[in-house]
């Protein structure tokens, strides 16, 4: 079971969180024209990297904040966590 550091609450067990997918995907702006290719990429296309991956988790059983987690998909090592407004490099 992963041990995830919520930037608001501190280290908490994985069972308090819910997974939310790739955090680097950016939704096309509302009310702006978007090509169907860009839209399809946004809705459907995801990379499945082996190694470092920046992903979203929501602290559903805690502060209910969505957060960013940089995790190694092969080893589960967590390198960094951040608020969604912050950058992970």
């Amino acid at each position: 079971m992963l041990y995830i550091k919520c930037p608001y609450c501190g280290l908490r067990a994985q069972k308090e969180f819910s997974y939310g997918g790739d955090a680097t995907v950016k939704r096309p702006n509302i009310n702006e024209e978007v090509s169907s290719e860009d839209w399809d990429n946004f809705v459907y296309m995801r990379k499945s990297p082996r190694g470092k991956h920046i992903e979203l988790w929501q602290h559903i059983a805690g502060c209910r904040q969505w957060i960013k987690v940089q995790r190694d998909t092969a080893t589960h090592e967590i390198f960094q966590t951040a608020k969604v407004t912050e950058e992970i490099r």
Binding site: S18, G20, L56, Q58, I60, W66, V84
Partner: peptide, 17 residues
């Protein structure tokens, strides 16, 4: 109920802060 709340929070916190 729970999914809709998470859905709304997602857009408010991440997409349209």
């Amino acid at each position: 109920a729970a999914n809709v709340l998470s859905h709304l929070e997602y857009y408010l916190q991440i997409v349209w802060p």
